[in-house]
């Protein structure tokens, strides 16, 4: 039983002078300053936040989901400590979804300015005479505006933790962006196609804490359905040997990726149904057609072929 909950982290951006100017920071770093340093808030006259840094672009087409709410939360927190601070949020689309919408309204009421930018015309950040200058197009006045803030906060993307080795080890699929992929988006949202392995949290996709908790509870419940049983029945998809046909040629013994087939005391191949993983390699390799995989017997697969493009149609 494995629950994959490897989490995610905040992308360290490589744009907007991050790492080059100490006044440029990510939302998490900004939050830390707000909480840990009592003088920090009072010193902020102007703060600019840029949304969708590293998300919803070519490299990472997904929305990181938490950044809009985090930006609104931190803007409100700063406003609570220093009501005179001006906060300008440069956004593409605000998604304070669910029950967080009232915070967005509150932020607007408290005077946080939200300015939309287009992905083709991202804000320009540069250092001018030792000051941080941010130039962007303000659509309501239809002019390019330059602001000199005390702090520039980047709402950067949520990325999965390094998990390639784990994915290979467990043989579970990941999306191109590195997040784990569930067995079915709607029907099996916390399962992997492999039995006994489940996924939850940021390992699966960007989401907020409430969603992570709900998904974690779901994964735990799914694991519980197995752990609660004293015995479990394995699937019926196992290979069965027809001893009459078996010539004990050892092909199956060599082919099986799990070394399940053995030659029994009667000199015939024997496959333990509990150990069999049901891949069907032995059935396909057996030169005497002595092995059939239940539910995928040759007659069944051939019947499917016949049913799809039946013979009557060929004659027509």
């Amino acid at each position: 039983m494995v629950i994959v909950a490897t989490g995610g982290e905040e992308l360290k951006p490589d744009e907007y002078l991050y790492g080059k100017n100490e006044r440029v920071m990510t939302q998490l770093e900004f939050e830390e300053h707000l909480v840990e340093e009592p003088q920090f808030s009072a010193a902020q006259k102007t703060v600019v936040m840029i949304q969708c840094v590293g998300s919803r672009n070519e490299e990472r087409p997904y929305c990181s989901r938490v950044c809009c709410s985090t930006a609104v939360k931190n803007a409100l927190r700063l406003k609570a400590k220093n009501p005179d601070a001006q906060v300008i949020v440069l956004y593409r689309d605000i998604r304070t979804y669910g029950l967080m919408e009232p915070y967005y309204r509150e932020a607007r009421e408290k005077g946080v300015v939200f300015v939309r930018y287009e992905p083709e015309d991202k804000p320009k950040v540069e250092e001018r005479d030792g000051k941080l200058a941010i130039e962007f197009f303000e659509p309501t006045v239809r002019r390019r505006v330059t602001i000199y803030p005390d702090t520039l906060v980047l709402s950067s993307a949520t990325i999965p933790r390094e998990n390639e080795e784990l994915a290979l080890m467990l043989k579970v699929p990941r999306m191109a962006d590195g997040f784990f992929l569930e067995a079915h988006i709607k029907l099996r949202p916390v399962d992997f196609a492999t039995d006994g392995i489940y996924v939850c949290g940021l390992a699966h996709s960007p989401k907020n804490i409430t969603e992570s908790v709900a998904q974690a509870a779901a994964a735990a419940a799914r694991a519980g359905t197995v752990l609660a049983n004293d015995t479990i029945s394995v699937g019926g998809v196992v290979a069965v040997v027809d001893e009459e046909k078996c010539a004990a040629c050892l092909t199956c013994v060599r082919a099986c990726p799990y070394s399940v087939p053995v030659i029994n005391e009667r000199g015939k191949a024997e496959i333990d149904p509990v150990k069999c993983h049901g891949c069907g390699v032995c059935a396909a390799e057996c030169p005497g057609k002595a092995i059939q995989l239940q539910y995928f017997r040759d007659v069944q697969v051939l019947a499917k072929c016949d049913a799809l493009y039946g013979k009557e149609e060929v004659a027509a």
Binding site: V237, C279, G280, V281, A283, A284, V301, K304, C305, K311
Partner: peptide, 25 residues
């Protein structure tokens, strides 16, 4: 496209492939 599901492509037999053609695929 018509799909036939297999537990693993390792289960596919030359017999199945040829039968599909024989049936008119």
């Amino acid at each position: 496209i018509r799909i036939i599901r297999l537990p693993c492509t390792g289960k596919v037999d030359v017999l199945h492939l040829l039968r599909a053609f024989e049936d008119g695929a």
